[in-house]
Design a protein around this nucleic acid. Structure first.
Lengths: 197, 197
DNA sequence: AATAAAAGCTAACAATCGTTAGGAGGAAAT
DNA sequence: ATTTCCTCCTAACGATTGTTAGCTTTTATT
């Protein structure tokens, strides 16, 4: 018998979920089988069901944990006394940090949420839309205050959020560049643009 | 009996592939079944195999058609007499146009290529890496000529390419903004940045 | 009108899927 | 020492997966 390792800080369920996040990222939710997951956890497939109620529940946990994190953070930023461009930069930096430090979950949450089923699917769609609109609002405020160029705010949001998900390639290639450096480069390019002034 | 419609320009195989692209985008490659696809084509699942040899082949066709398109285009751009920043802009505009006009294929090619199997998987990984490096080279040339800011070129490539895939949300939301406008906004933001000079 | 080729059908295959039932072994609580 | 709970196991279920075989029907060619 091979029990799932459990320290004080992480329950057996947490172990399953974090292993699942790795597999979901590598192969996608649908292409990952419960027997696959079980093997990586070191247990038979049926044993997983002592800790989770379904495969769908695992995806739900991953997606909503991440979504809650971002929602909490954007609220803090909104209530801070930063300028609008600083708020955008703070949000950007948070996304990059999350993508670097909690790569698996964040990536899965971003790419696999479509496989949620309905009460959760609608909820997630709503949260994502709301999140984008809140960033859009900050950008529009920034434009009105003259801090930010007169650009199409929803397009800017879309670029910001998707640019960050490119960190995936960074994770794969493991170039010499450090995480902090990556963060600064990304912020510089997105905030400052490519062209020399 | 319901035969697959075929005009002069598109074979039955093409019809299957383009329907498959729609489904692969909506639900992902793994979550799309051959019976699913058959239903949307208007035929029984087994009948598909008179036109294609496997599910995998469909994904291969989609991915390599798109990859070839981008490869051909970047070669044209490289050999043109544009400045480096203009080359980057041309590549960017091509990506945006492709993402708008041939959404399904391009999106699937970008997100589902991981499900290719091995001679094709390695080939695609190689092509993607080569493509990124060629863009990176243009950026580095641009930096050396003083046209482009001193930024980390691979990071800039990563941002460019992933920003474009954000057009997905544009497709879904169908905002009032037109394709041309979207293209211009994206180029302006990526080339010029958010911040007011 | 006869024939060949193309494209459809039904039925079925082996494999794999998520999940459940029922029981065994070990740890914690009594 | 006995009971209770937790975790794991084996075995199996019904459903679905991609695909093949064999036959029929439609379309194209002669």
């Amino acid at each position: 018998m091979a029990k799932i390792k459990s320290n004080r800080t992480s329950t057996r369920k947490d172990v399953i979920i974090s292993k699942a996040a790795i597999l979901f990222r590598e192969k996608g939710y649908s292409a990952t089988s419960m027997r696959d997951l079980a093997e990586h956890v070191g247990v038979e497939a049926a044993s997983l069901y002592n800790h989770i109620s379904s495969k769908a529940e695992i995806l739900q946990e991953i997606c909503f944990r991440v979504a809650t994190n971002f929602m909490t953070h954007i609220e803090e930023v909104e209530q801070s006394k930063k300028s609008e461009i600083e708020k955008i930069e703070a949000i950007l930096r948070y996304h990059i940090k999350m993508m670097i430090e909690r790569y698996e979950e964040v990536y899965v949450s971003d790419r696999e949420w479509k496989h949620l089923t309905d009460p959760y699917l609608s909820n997630m769609q709503g949260q994502r839309r709301a999140y984008r609109q809140r960033i859009g609002k900050i950008i529009e405020d920034g434009i009105q205050k003259g801090e930010i160029k007169k650009i199409d705010a929803p397009t800017a949001v879309l670029i910001m959020l998707h640019a960050v998900s490119g960190i995936e390639s960074w994770h794969r290639s493991k170039r010499k560049i450090e995480g902090d450096q990556l963060e600064n480069s990304m912020v510089e390019i997105l905030v400052g643009g490519l062209q020399k002034p």
